[in-house]
Design a protein around this nucleic acid. Structure first.
Lengths: 153, 153
DNA sequence: CAAATTTCAGTTCCACTGAGATGG
DNA sequence: CCCATCTCAGTGAAACTGAAATTT
């Protein structure tokens, strides 16, 4: 009985129904699926967000990129280094402002982005498999309101 | 305009509406609130879960505790060490199975747990502030289905 | 012998902090 | 002088891995 209830449940009932707990579990699940998917495509999560920001907003400084994709300034450096190595983006000094590196996505970069889009879409599908599309929309709506609220930031 | 749209939005639009992204953002927010709340009460997240599991299921071996509260066997050791130091739990060898340490929550432990319950409740409230109680129930319902599904585990 | 438990040491991943150097 | 940018080094939490020692 001990072991049965332990195996079935997901921790103390006090915790199992907690919004923060459920959100965190779902996040761990989603992150795992994304990491596996990205790894199979040979990249990591940060870099998808960087490529997506580059395609959507065009060439940008590393600082601007970091803000747009919500990645810490410090972490942008290494991620861009890697993307440059893979030929997915180019880094060039801004002639008009010597402080900036202007990052531009390459053709190979946009191609890679398309490939990753497929991965991302299929992960959403896998994670939300038990939900109808109406439920999925509702979930997105609720979570959007939560994260837009941003308690103390 | 560049900076305005960057400041307003939460990353590339392609990403901003993604369930995995929203879930992850909400998770980061919730974890931050919980960590701050627990820190103010002088504990950490693991230990709340351990105390809650102990109160709910009664005395248990460290391995069983770890399974019930979904904490890795290795991490249980240090967490219990700390709880013992604080007098919130007791550790004793199981007379019937020399491999096991039987962990029991103390009166001080249950008192601490009550205090932490308040913290946890207020964090839920803060995180979900923008949602009505019907919305909160709906969110819990949807997320429960997602985490129960457990794609590949 | 196999299996479970406790424990230690070390790794990985993510997010962040602090500080130095360069340039506007 | 002040500020933004880029970069590096390092910190901290959470989750996990591998292996040894003990006991069933």
């Amino acid at each position: 009985m001990d072991e049965a209830s332990a195996a079935a449940g997901a921790g103390p009932s006090r915790v199992a129904q907690l919004p923060t707990w459920l959100i965190n579990r779902a996040s761990v699940l989603g992150n795992r699926l994304l990491r596996e998917g990205f790894a199979a495509a040979g990249l990591h999560g940060y870099k998808y967000r960087l490529l997506a920001a580059l395609e959507e907003f065009g060439p940008a400084s590393q600082a601007a990129l970091g803000r747009r994709s919500m990645i810490d300034r410090s972490d942008v450096v290494a991620a861009i280094d890697d993307l440059v190595d893979r030929g997915l983006v180019k880094r060039a000094r801004d002639p008009r402002d010597g402080r900036r590196n202007v990052i531009t996505i390459t053709r190979a970069g946009t191609a890679k982005l398309r490939q990753l889009d497929l991965v991302v879409t299929s992960v959403q599908d896998e994670l939300l498999a038990p939900l109808s599309s109406a439920d999925r929309r509702e979930l997105v709506r609720l979570l959007s309101r939560v994260v837009e609220h941003e308690p103390r930031r």
